[in-house]
Design a binder for these strands. Structure first.
Length: 590
RNA sequence: GCGCUCGUAGCUCAGUUGGAUAGAGCGUUGGUUUCCGAAGCCAAAGGCCACAGGUUCGAUUCCUGUCGAGCGCGCCA
């Protein structure tokens, strides 16, 4: 087990060291490491350890007797005021007031570096998230992936990793062609001479209309009447103005082929235009959500550079591929997958799987010591084949982690809203942001475990946005700002490090010291478990303790004023830091 | 049918890699402001941690089974 070397954890390290010395006298070969726990109840001390319970069997002694032996050997320390044996044999440690209070000085000295850990030893880690198809606006499901991924990346940075944020752009493949054709057809339809029916499986959102208008002004997209005639002869699936339901995909393929031949090089230009529009829209949308990326990685670039062909050749050379029914298959069952997978179709085109293998190989080759793919939970069945391919290529797949983000179910007027990108019936991230605000959306998204379904009641979010937890935390921050504003005494700066904190003995103050001390532990665990929601819950708890404190004691014009103001500053520092990790603003007034 | 993720208060959810009396928000009920921001605070009620076994000092947590929910199982991406 590694212990993060951070000043913030030094107190715990020190206590463990003291206990270790004592245990060494009792058991030469302990069968368990010393674990410090934080009791839920204050009466159980600041720290507690069950080490005596764990050693009891080894030593063939009752747990409480073991605890006695350990305590007898526990070195004296100014940190520990007293210790006791409780329950079945727990050893409870009570810190001295000075030890409890010291966290405040520590926080003010470190500022936003408080709870900065060295868990990752600055190893480079790649966090890939969102990676939505650039075929339309981001919807609320993507928003959750964005909020989770961005918070996770911030968290890992805080924990001492060198984080690289990446968006994988699926700019190759059929979906982009469908969007290009959809835009083209909408552009032509701006003329009354064009009556060719818009395909049911085309992209139907308003944004397509918008792009069509712009594209019409930029590119020569053909004469509406002649294109109408040409298209009608291009697809045998069109019967009058309709297409049979089971022929829609084949019909679309005909339209794509027709568009390419009718437009020639202009098709490529339209494709580039449409793609650029969508990426820019996405980039801007995310930026307004407080989510930015270091790189936007193009899937198409993997084809252009030959990386896809290369990686398939590597698999072939290693004997992991075989031909069947005209297609090339990867024997993923050799690596635990439930069935083999096609990497190259009988028509010669590579599958999405093939480019994804190349993409992940590329990630490994870039030298990251750790790879994190944030995926939608509906892709979980896809993980085994990717892992299989990477193992076949000889990569260490233990470095790859794929946290899954469950879908967001929208409820409007008590009914679940169905979402379909293709038909344009979805709620966009942008509209959600405009409705409930960036801060509320960012916090709401990470206020539950990522692998749990999120029921988002739009009416509730709209009608009662005042009740959103985000205000509760921000209010704590703003309240502190208000008190600090009123603090007029400039003779001693609260963060000078020389403030006498000994007056802080109120139970609410002791509870706050404990919570503030816990922050680095929360960061560590949240980073280890890739669970930013733990930070959100911590902040809500800390805010609650502050609000209770605020109602319990005065801050101005009392003899504890300076010490209390100093404590408030440290609470504010932690609140701001935590909100910052989650991409939520920390207002000084609201 | 197989696989993955789950099942905790009326509702929405936490639960520190097995710890002491299982927590919070919303909702319900009752209090709280001549005073630093009441977007707050205090209190009460509310639980067979889905069910049944197993592992051990100890299980909401780990294992097995049953029941129930969601998702996945394409030469789509």
């Amino acid at each position: 087990m590694t212990v993060a070397s951070s000043p913030s954890l030094s107190l715990e390290d020190h206590l463990i060291e003291l206990l270790s010395q004592a245990v060494a006298h009792v058991a030469t070969e302990p069968n368990a490491p010393i674990v410090l726990e934080r009791p839920k109840q204050a009466s159980h001390g600041d720290y507690s350890t069950p080490i005596a319970l764990q050693l009891a069997k080894l030593l063939r002694l009752p747990p409480r007797e073991v605890a006695n032996l350990i305590l007898a050997r526990l070195p004296d320390s100014p940190l520990i005021e007293r210790s006791e044996i409780a329950g079945a044999g727990f050893i409870n440690l009570f810190l001295s007031p000075a030890a409890r209070q010291s966290v405040v000085t520590e926080i003010l000295a470190l500022g936003s570096d408080y709870a900065r850990l060295n868990l990752g030893h600055q190893q480079p880690v790649l966090v890939e998230f969102v990676s939505s198809n650039p075929t339309g606006p981001l919807h609320v499901g993507h928003g959750r992936g964005a909020a989770f991924g961005a918070s996770l990346a911030n968290l890992l940075d805080k924990a001492g990793y060198t984080v690289h944020r990446e968006y994988y752009v699926n700019d190759a493949g059929r979906q982009m062609d469908i969007l290009t054709v959809s835009t083209w057809l909408r552009a032509l339809a701006l003329s009354p001479a064009f009556t060719f029916p818009f395909p049911a499986n085309g992209y139907q959102g308003d944004y397509v209309q918008s792009m069509a208008g712009d594209a019409m002004n930029l590119l020569a997209l053909g004469e509406p009447d002649s294109m109408d005639a040409a298209l009608r002869s291009a697809s045998p699936h069109l019967m009058g103005q309709t297409v049979a339901a089971d022929a829609e995909e084949a019909h679309m393929d005909c339209l794509i082929a027709a568009a390419k031949s009718l437009l020639g090089t202009t098709y490529g230009e339209l494709h580039v235009f449409v793609l650029a529009q969508q990426i820019e829209d996405c980039r801007q949308d995310l930026a307004e959500f407080g989510v930015t990326f270091d790189t936007w990685f193009s899937e198409q670039s993997l084809f252009d550079s030959g990386a896809v062909a290369q990686v398939v050749n590597r698999l072939s050379a290693a004997g992991h591929l075989y031909l069947r029914d005209g297609a090339t298959w990867f024997r993923s069952t050799d690596f635990g997958d439930e069935k083999d997978r096609v990497v190259q179709r009988d028509n010669g085109l590579y599958t999405y799987f093939a480019s994804d293998i190349a993409y992940h190989a590329n990630k490994f080759e870039r030298g990251f010591s750790r790879l994190i793919d944030v995926w939608g939970a509906d892709h979980h069945g896809y993980i085994p084949r990717v892992v299989a391919a990477l193992q076949a290529l000889g990569y260490d797949t233990a470095r790859l982690t794929v946290p899954l983000v469950q879908f967001v179910s929208l409820f409007r007027q008590g009914e679940k809203a169905q979402m379909s990108t293709r038909k344009g019936q979805f709620v966009t991230l942008r509209s959600l942001r405009h409705e409930v605000g960036r801060d509320a959306a960012r916090l709401f998204y990470v206020l539950r475990k990522s692998d749990q379904h999120l029921d988002f009641d739009l009416d509730l979010a709209l009608a009662q946005s005042q009740d959103n937890p985000v205000y509760y935390i921000q209010y704590a921050h703003a309240r502190i700002a208000r008190v600090l504003e009123r603090w007029q005494d400039d003779s001693v700066a609260p963060d000078s490090g020389h403030v006498d904190l000994s007056p802080l003995i109120h139970p609410a103050e002791v509870a706050l010291f404990k919570s503030l001390r816990t922050y680095p532990t929360v960061i560590r665990q949240a980073a280890q478990e890739l669970a930013p929601h733990q930070v959100a819950f911590y902040l809500r708890d800390l805010a609650a303790e502050f609000h209770a404190y605020y109602n319990a004691v005065p801050f101005l014009d009392c003899h504890e004023s300076l010490a209390r103001i100093t404590l408030l500053k440290s609470i504010q520092t932690v609140l701001r830091d935590g909100l910052n990790l989650l991409g939520v603003s920390a207002p000084t007034s609201m």
